[in-house]
């Protein structure tokens, strides 16, 4: 039951972190945050030790707070879009 709850909790956290990362106004910070979130969850996908999972979860929640805070700061001082962002946008 504990594992089930954790799995749902982890999935929800993963999605929230990705969603929040997308809010970075800076292209490079956004891409970096998305890549790091993705890699970290992939790296820890096969963890079984409940205590270790709990610690990793706590760390992830701390990082979620950092992402949220940095997004706000980034929005306060956002800059012009980079050349690459316009190219990406046109491709889409």
């Amino acid at each position: 039951m504990i594992i089930m709850t954790s799995r749902q909790q982890i999935l929800k956290l993963y999605k929230t972190m990705l969603r929040e990362s997308q809010k970075f106004p800076s292209y490079n910070f956004k891409q970096y945050a998305v890549r790091r979130v993705h890699d970290a969850f992939k790296e820890n996908r096969s963890l079984t030790d409940a205590k270790f999972i709990e610690n990793q979860l706590k760390e992830a929640y701390r990082n979620l707070d950092i992402i949220k805070r940095q997004v706000i700061i980034g929005q306060l001082y956002s800059t012009e879009k980079l050349v690459i962002e316009n190219i990406e946008k046109n491709k889409k």
């Binding site: 490079n28 910070f29 050349v83 690459i84 190219i87 990406e88």
Partner: peptide, 11 residues
């Protein structure tokens, strides 16, 4: 660096 993206490198 770590903030460089694959798209930037290709472009």
């Amino acid at each position: 660096g770590k903030f460089t993206t694959e798209e930037e490198v290709v472009e």
